[in-house]
Amino acid sequence: MRAFDYIRAGSCKDALAEAETPGTAFIAGGTNLLDLMKHEVMTPARLVDISRLDLRGITLTDAGLRVGALVSNSDLAADPLVRRHWPLLSRALLAGASGQLRNKATTGGNLLQRTRCYYFYDTAMPCNKREPGSGCAAIGGFNRIHAILGASEACIATHPSDMAVALRALSAEVELLAPGGGRRQVPLAAFYRLPGDTPHVETVLEPGEMIAAVLLPPAEGGRQIYRKVRDRASYAFALVSVAACLRMEQGRIAAAALAFGGLAHMPWRSADVEGTLIGEVPSAALFDRAADLLLAEAKGQGDNDFKIPLARRTLAAVLAEATAEDTEGDRA
């Protein structure tokens, strides 16, 4: 591990001021950053510990729910408001990591966790994300967990978060604080970036910017489902996941928001897929059409080819469940 300076921030203002020095990283739960530092995948010279800042609140406002960046994944999943109105979020959180990790992991940190690409973690391997310009070992290597959508020739990594997939379906926004005192709000849709030729730039965060909160618009009602397909029953990242918020009216799909994990460099959402569903009577053929639209541009890398049929089937199953007549509302 590279030696680093450790600064414990007493306030958001302090933290932001400290972060102006280049080479500084925030540390929240540390469940991702510390691993990466031990392997020297990330080597910040300075750590600003924000874990004691007062960003732990979960508050209901007219605009929806405001979740402080330091709310732990466990607390967020257990929050009664979240469980009642945004059960999708609770389920996605509980589908991730393990109890111990969720106790430590924070909302902001979860959004910014880095890919689990094996080659990213191995400093002996070329990786454009870790070392721009060095190449991508996953292409032509073992790429079972890699992207089938939105990948580039520079990087085929996926974003590993479950929570972010749920937030994407829930149309969440991220509140950012800038070192100069600025505050801006970015929809999650615009927060993440596709790899392109700069896979090391993963979000629109400016240097020194800090996530202060995640904002959820009021819940839409209808059914919410999070389905995660993984290699073992727990403690494994999604091969494919689907987050769905779907509302039926008189036998037709009135509203549909669908986000996908495990497929791309960021939680994936497609207006075409949703558009094709809305106003329609659910049927296997309709779900198939939705899957066709979702996967029209999908490209396997060899080991991950199976994600294409897997995503298709999982989507169909989620839609069938979300539109089934026999059950009403949310299901536990």
Partner: peptide, 14 residues
């Protein structure tokens, strides 16, 4: 390639 317990999957309790 999978040199840790996050990616070398031994069965977990679940």
């Amino acid at each position: 390639v999978n040199r840790d317990l996050a990616e070398y999957h031994v069965p977990v309790n679940a």
